[in-house]
């Protein structure tokens, strides 16, 4: 099932020797990885290790300075067309939800399909309603984000991203800002998405989710990939001291 050294041909995302600086600070060191279609990756590591930076480079929210990032055959460069094309194929869910407060749940989901894809209003609406149904929140369509709980907001954010019909979904600590009782509803939504075959990269410390869903767990520290393995192996037999220390901290609290 898992093949960490996937060839370019069947890969949905490939990063080759990617380096990224914030000014003089080097945030990514020679990152090479690939994710094939339908694969679920859990990305973990201590705070500040570059997880967010890595996935934000994939949809060009942050520019990288060296190496190559390729999504579904499109090479991400300074060329605006490639950035547009990639962002249309890659959905992203943020820790802080980032719903648009002045738009209803339904309008949040309709905005990008209408403005970025040029869908007619009716089509955008039926698509949005179907996806709100899928994240089990259809009855809240007319509400504003501030009227929803955190878990509901995050499910709307997932539906909003899905409305662009992306081929890949990136999650940046989607449950970290939630009250504990709301974590499950969001994880369940993500599990459903995984079961439907979505290609996913999830930055999360929910190790139960990793065990259940991930094809591969990637561990990062100090801007570099330290090790990657299928979850069973990753948890039972981590190769590096750094990983063992991290797992010790995260599983014991």
């Amino acid at each position: 099932m898992t093949n960490p050294s996937a060839t370019q041909a069947d890969a949905m995302i490939t990063l080759t020797h990617v380096e990224k600086w914030y000014g003089a600070f080097k945030a990514l060191h020679d990152v090479t990885m690939s994710v094939h279609q339908g694969e679920k990756i859990v990305l973990c590591g201590p705070s500040g290790s570059g997880k967010s930076t890595l996935i934000r480079c994939i949809n060009s929210l942050e520019p990288h300075q060296k190496g190559e990032i390729r999504v579904d055959g499109i090479v991400l460069g300074p060329n605006a067309k490639a950035i547009d094309a990639i962002r249309r194929e890659v959905g992203m869910v943020f820790q802080q939800f980032n719903l648009f407060p002045h738009l209803t749940v339904l309008e949040n989901c309709m905005l990008a399909p209408m403005r970025a894809l040029g869908l007619a209003k009716s089509e955008a609406e039926s698509r949005a309603r179907a996806l709100l149904e899928r994240v089990k929140i259809a009855e809240q369509a007319a509400k504003y984000p501030a009227q929803l709980s955190g878990g509901q907001q995050q499910r709307v954010a997932i539906a909003r991203a899905l409305c662009m019909q992306p081929k890949v979904m990136l999650f940046d600590e989607p449950t970290s800002a939630l009250d504990p009782e709301m974590v499950k509803e969001v994880l369940d939504t993500m599990i459903g998405l995984a079961e439907d075959g979505m290609t996913m990269i999830c930055v999360t410390h929910e190790m139960g989710f990793a065990r259940q869903v991930a094809d591969r767990v990637i561990f990062m520290a100090d801007g570099a990939i330290v090790e990657q393995a299928p979850p069973a192996e990753f948890f039972s037999n981590p190769a590096h001291e750094r990983t063992r220390k991290f797992l010790g901290e995260i599983l014991n609290h």
């Binding site: 929210l61 547009d84 962002r87 890659v90």
Partner: peptide, 15 residues
Amino acid sequence: ISKGQMEAGLALGLH
């Protein structure tokens, strides 16, 4: 307005 609003819009493919 928080930077996250701009990022969410860009990530959705808006200019």
